[in-house]
Amino acid sequence: MDSSLLDLFPPILGASLLQNPQVLFALRVLGVLLPAFLGIYLMLPRGGRDSHVVRLFGGALVTLSFVLLVTFPLSSSEGAVDGSQGTALWGLDNTLECYTFHALAFVSVACAVMMITSRNPVYSAIWFAMVLLSNSGLYLLQQAEFLAAATIIVYAGAIVVTFLFVIMLAQPNGAARYDRFSREGLLSAVTGLLLSGVLIAAIHLVSRTEGRAPVADAAARPAGSVVAIQAAANPTSLLPDGKNPNAAHVAGLGKSLFRDHVVSVEITGLLLLAAVVGAMLIAGHRIEESHVRK
């Protein structure tokens, strides 16, 4: 009875806490992320006026957290797969690709922080466009040219512009009071800390103990296995991992979209139809004056 209950919750009721390498690892991840948590919490807009000093300090803390994430060893190198010397999440090596990646990643994270801490929704929309641009750069680094172009055209080009129009049309007198400060700033910052901690820990563990792309590495599988056959048939369904640089991207994507996923494409059409008709119905549908509580 007792043993099986222990089996049910092995991570919680494990051996003594502080000697457990998993607990140490979790504490390190939280420690690395703690400056970012404090910084974002300080930067969130509250009632009263913005203090530039506080915002600058918060920004410095977020930057510190990012630097720690790149340099600080999160776990000991035991059990690491071959070829991964560093034990930080993304170790620096001396390639242009690596520097570009870190620069773009920093811009992306910094703009995202600015997006959620801006008091003015218009600024938030513009910072969001910056996030998307730097993400497009990251997609380009991963050789996903189509995704990069589509992100810029669809998001930065169309959706952010629509955001700006909506904000300007809906609030001609400036943002409403409830739009200008964040309620539950502490709770949302804690949630963000926990979520990013879990995700970073998971990705770190995978990259240390399982190597890159654990199961999806179809090329390494015996020829003739189902996975290899499927991979040969669908080059675009593979994650680009540098081993097959010749995988067809845009043409392959189109082929895959209209051959493997044609039903999904049609469902997307239905979805957009429902959304457009719904938007028009809601826009044409006025709240009756007599029901509005003043």
């Binding site: 999904s264 469902i267 979805l271 429902a274 119905l281 549908h285 709240i287 029901h291």
Partner: peptide, 23 residues
Amino acid sequence: MLFLSLELISIPTYVLLYLGRKD
């Protein structure tokens, strides 16, 4: 397809909720 089908349920639901009552 699973995700899109779930969304095909959600989006009409939003509209029906908006149209349901007018207060």
